[in-house]
């Protein structure tokens, strides 16, 4: 633990300094990504405004769902996405071998040495959107609900990091894993909409094997006091538990993949 405090912040610091060598590109990246998300949200807003609601969710409620989705995702992905999407290259180039001979968890090293400030643009978009949505939507605020909001966000970030880590970890055993992100992002896109508009089979997947319903829809529904299909009243606590559970499963899977690591090849 103490060792982690000595190493991990320094890793982040080194990474920041390395990135600062290319800061112009990074700032342009923030703007571009925020623009891109804003553009998709505009399209969704236009649909909702034109048809009044989508699955019973009006625009301000959709805005809460979308901002929750973006915030949870960017918090989790900052520690995982770029690093673990690259894992297959890291493996192929043999860099992973060099991590395996250090007395530090390769996961921690990767996550922190690539801690991505590239998500600043996402967060700059998500926070005002969420603030606006929370003032518009009809939320019966009380201290527990505030805590719930924070807890659910953490859980959302954990789900994201856990799934992204697991997909990346598959590269340790099967060499290639980047393609699996297409499937993840397919479901990730579904998580931008109310779960109740999807067929039962997709709902079931979204609360089990690909538990992305918990990263945005369930917490938003709980805050807005809407009924959640399949789960009912269990939804609220499950959304808090989903992150830690996903994290534990991801850790077990990561260990298994490390044990079955095949090396960089010839």
């Amino acid at each position: 633990m103490l060792a982690a405090l000595r190493v991990l912040p320094f890793l982040v610091q080194l990474h920041m300094r390395a990135t600062m060598e290319y800061r112009g590109a990074m700032i342009l990246g923030w703007i571009a990504m925020a623009f891109s998300y804003a553009s998709v949200y505009t399209a969704i807003a236009l649909i909702v405004l034109r048809f009044e609601n989508i699955g019973g969710w009006v625009w301000s409620e959709m805005a809460l769902l979308l901002s929750f989705h973006l915030l949870g995702y960017s918090l989790g992905a900052a520690f995982s996405f770029v690093q673990f999407r690259q894992l297959e290259d890291i493996v192929r180039l043999g860099t992973f071998d060099t991590l395996m001979v250090k007395p530090i968890s390769p996961w921690a090293y990767l996550a922190f040495s690539g801690f991505n400030i590239g998500y600043a643009g996402h967060i700059t978009l998500a926070l005002p959107l969420m603030t606006w949505a929370l003032t518009q939507a009809d939320v019966g605020w009380n201290p527990t609900l505030v805590l719930y909001l924070v807890g659910a966000l953490v859980s959302s970030a954990l789900i994201t990091a856990a799934i992204i880590t697991s997909i990346g970890a598959s590269a340790l055993v099967w060499v290639r894993s980047r393609h699996l992100y297409s499937i993840y992002f397919g479901f990730w896109e579904l998580a931008r909409y109310p779960l109740n508009i999807f067929p039962g089979i997709i709902q079931a997947i979204m609360v089990t094997v690909m538990p992305l319903a918990f990263m945005s829809y369930v917490p938003a529904a709980v805050l807005l006091d809407k009924e959640v299909p399949l789960l009912g009243p269990a939804a609220a606590p499950l959304a808090l538990a989903a992150g830690p559970i996903a994290t534990i499963l991801a850790m077990l899977y990561w260990r298994w993949c490390i044990r079955n690591y095949q090396g960089a090849g010839g």
């Binding site: 060792a3 190493v7 320094f10 080194l14 390395a18 180039l93 860099t95 071998d97 060099t98 007395p103």
Partner: peptide, 27 residues
């Protein structure tokens, strides 16, 4: 461990920084 074909140093940073990180990792 030294791998001839792959570097363990940070590409964009001075050698010193990689050494300092090493010191911290190995305590």
């Amino acid at each position: 461990v030294v791998f001839g074909q792959r570097s363990q140093l940070w590409w964009d940073l001075p050698v010193h920084d990689s050494f300092e990180l090493h010191r911290r990792i190995y305590d």
